[in-house]
């Protein structure tokens, strides 16, 4: 039904509504995945695979942090483990469980390699990503020391 005001169709309201809808449809929709989902794209895109996506929520229901981060040697850093399929089939990293015994085996490529192609390595929903501006410099930081070169 058309919006009416004092018996007259308000074309201006209609046009505004249409513009708002168009803006909503055209504007890129940010990802709404779970907090703690990790995209790992160190090598996947370059090898013609979708990036791997790891769900922290799914795994923490089944294992405590200690299993992967102490016993299996996963560093607390997205992309910091340099995981390759060769390491996985040798039973390292994901391959410690994804070996067909504790969890499904590596022939199920798409279960991990499910990310939107081109997505960079990152932790989804991290506080650093949600900040409007980067964290502020602390006051009275010593001034003279040479700044460390940014890592690439």
């Amino acid at each position: 039904m058309l919006p009416k005001m004092k018996g007259r169709i308000t074309w201006r309201a209609l046009a505004l509504g249409a513009a708002a809808w168009a803006a909503m449809l055209i504007a890129p929709v940010p990802a709404q995945a779970e907090y703690g989902d990790v995209v790992i794209n160190n090598y996947a895109d370059a090898a013609g695979m979708r990036p791997a996506v790891f769900s922290h929520w799914f795994h923490r229901v089944r294992f405590r942090c200690k299993v992967c981060h102490a016993d299996l040697g996963f560093q607390f850093k997205a992309g910091g483990n340099k995981i390759t399929m060769a390491k996985i089939i040798d039973g390292k990293f994901c391959g410690a469980c994804h070996n067909g015994e504790i969890a499904w085996s590596v022939e199920n490529c798409g279960m991990c390699h499910s990310g939107v192609p081109g997505t960079p390595t990152h932790i989804h929903g991290s506080t650093a990503q949600t900040l409007v501006a980067p964290p502020h410099q602390p006051l009275l930081a010593p001034a003279a020391a040479p700044a460390p070169a940014p890592k690439k």
Binding site: Q32, W57, S114, G115
Partner: peptide, 29 residues
């Protein structure tokens, strides 16, 4: 920045590719 939805299934979460068949098998939160 406000999320437009919470606990979306993997195929709709924007991070995983709905073109990938296995995405639809993954557990929904």
């Amino acid at each position: 920045k406000k999320p437009k939805g919470v606990h979306l299934p993997p195929a709709e979460d924007g991070l995983r590719d709905p073109q990938n068949e296995a995405t639809h098998i993954l557990a929904a939160p």
